Deep mutational scan, measured.
Amino acid sequence: SEEWVEIALRLLELGREANINGTILNLHKEEIEELIRRLLKRI
C-alpha cells in the first residue's frame, strides 16, 4: 500500500490550507506531527 503517498498528499493539502488561511496550523499541529511520524517509520 502507498500509505506514504497519502500522508504526503495530506501534508501538502494542510500546507495549502495554511497559506490560504495564513494560519500557523495550530489546528492541525497534532495531525501533522502524527502524519510525519508515520511517514518517517516507512523510510
Score class of each variant (00 low, 15 high):
residue 1 S to L: 05
residue 1 S to P: 07
residue 1 S to D: 08
residue 1 S to I: 13
residue 1 S to Q: 14
residue 1 S to V: 15
residue 1 S to C: 14
residue 2 E to I: 13
residue 2 E to D: 05
residue 2 E to A: 10
residue 2 E to P: 05
residue 2 E to M: 11
residue 2 E to R: 09
residue 2 E to T: 09
residue 2 E to Y: 12
residue 3 E to Q: 10
residue 3 E to L: 13
residue 3 E to F: 15
residue 3 E to D: 11
residue 3 E to N: 13
residue 3 E to G: 10
residue 4 W to K: 00
residue 4 W to Q: 01
residue 4 W to G: 01
residue 5 V to A: 04
residue 5 V to F: 06
residue 5 V to P: 01
residue 5 V to T: 04
residue 5 V to S: 03
residue 6 E to N: 04
residue 6 E to F: 12
residue 6 E to I: 10
residue 6 E to C: 12
residue 6 E to W: 14
residue 6 E to Y: 08
residue 7 I to W: 11
residue 7 I to T: 01
residue 7 I to H: 05
residue 8 A to P: 01
residue 8 A to H: 04
residue 8 A to K: 02
residue 8 A to T: 06
residue 8 A to E: 05
residue 9 L to Y: 07
residue 9 L to E: 03
residue 9 L to V: 03
residue 9 L to H: 04
residue 10 R to K: 06
residue 10 R to G: 07
residue 10 R to T: 02
residue 10 R to L: 13
residue 11 L to T: 01
residue 11 L to I: 03
residue 11 L to F: 03
residue 11 L to P: 00
residue 12 L to F: 03
residue 12 L to D: 01
residue 12 L to P: 00
residue 13 E to M: 08
residue 13 E to A: 08
residue 13 E to T: 05
residue 14 L to N: 02
residue 14 L to C: 11
residue 14 L to G: 03
residue 14 L to A: 02
residue 15 G to R: 03
residue 15 G to Y: 15
residue 15 G to T: 09
residue 15 G to E: 02
residue 15 G to L: 15
residue 15 G to P: 04
residue 16 R to T: 06
residue 16 R to H: 08
residue 16 R to L: 14
residue 16 R to M: 06
residue 16 R to V: 13
residue 17 E to W: 09
residue 17 E to R: 04
residue 17 E to F: 10
residue 17 E to A: 09
residue 17 E to T: 11
residue 17 E to S: 04
residue 18 A to K: 01
residue 18 A to L: 12
residue 18 A to E: 02
residue 18 A to T: 12
residue 18 A to D: 04
residue 18 A to H: 06
residue 19 N to I: 15
residue 19 N to T: 11
residue 19 N to C: 14
residue 19 N to H: 14
residue 19 N to R: 07
residue 20 I to W: 13
residue 20 I to D: 03
residue 21 N to P: 03
residue 21 N to E: 06
residue 21 N to Y: 06
residue 21 N to D: 09
residue 21 N to K: 08
residue 21 N to Q: 04
residue 22 G to P: 15
residue 22 G to L: 14
residue 22 G to T: 12
residue 22 G to W: 11
residue 22 G to F: 09
residue 22 G to V: 10
residue 23 T to D: 11
residue 23 T to M: 06
residue 23 T to A: 06
residue 23 T to Q: 08
residue 23 T to H: 12
residue 24 I to F: 09
residue 24 I to L: 06
residue 24 I to N: 11
residue 24 I to C: 14
residue 24 I to K: 04
residue 25 L to T: 14
residue 25 L to I: 11
residue 25 L to S: 12
residue 25 L to M: 06
residue 25 L to R: 03
residue 25 L to Q: 11
residue 25 L to V: 13
residue 26 N to M: 10
residue 26 N to H: 12
residue 26 N to C: 15
residue 26 N to W: 15
residue 26 N to G: 07
residue 26 N to Y: 13
residue 27 L to W: 05
residue 27 L to A: 13
residue 27 L to F: 04
residue 27 L to N: 10
residue 27 L to K: 13
residue 28 H to E: 07
residue 28 H to L: 14
residue 28 H to A: 09
residue 28 H to P: 04
residue 28 H to G: 12
residue 29 K to S: 14
residue 29 K to P: 08
residue 29 K to I: 14
residue 29 K to T: 11
residue 30 E to F: 06
residue 30 E to S: 07
residue 31 E to I: 11
residue 31 E to G: 05
residue 31 E to K: 07
residue 31 E to N: 02
residue 31 E to H: 07
residue 31 E to W: 11
residue 32 I to H: 00
residue 32 I to Q: 00
residue 32 I to K: 00
residue 33 E to R: 12
residue 33 E to K: 06
residue 33 E to P: 02
residue 34 E to K: 04
residue 34 E to P: 02
residue 35 L to P: 00
residue 35 L to S: 00
residue 35 L to R: 03
residue 36 I to N: 00
residue 36 I to H: 00
residue 36 I to S: 00
residue 36 I to V: 04
residue 36 I to F: 09
residue 36 I to M: 05
residue 37 R to V: 07
residue 37 R to E: 03
residue 37 R to M: 08
residue 37 R to S: 05
residue 37 R to N: 04
residue 38 R to V: 08
residue 38 R to D: 09
residue 38 R to T: 08
residue 38 R to I: 06
residue 39 L to G: 00
residue 39 L to P: 00
residue 39 L to A: 03
residue 39 L to V: 14
residue 39 L to K: 00
residue 39 L to H: 00
residue 40 L to A: 03
residue 40 L to N: 02
residue 40 L to W: 09
residue 40 L to H: 06
residue 41 K to Q: 04
residue 41 K to G: 05
residue 41 K to T: 04
residue 41 K to R: 04
residue 42 R to N: 11
residue 42 R to L: 15
residue 42 R to S: 15
residue 43 I to W: 14
residue 43 I to C: 15
residue 43 I to G: 04
residue 43 I to A: 06
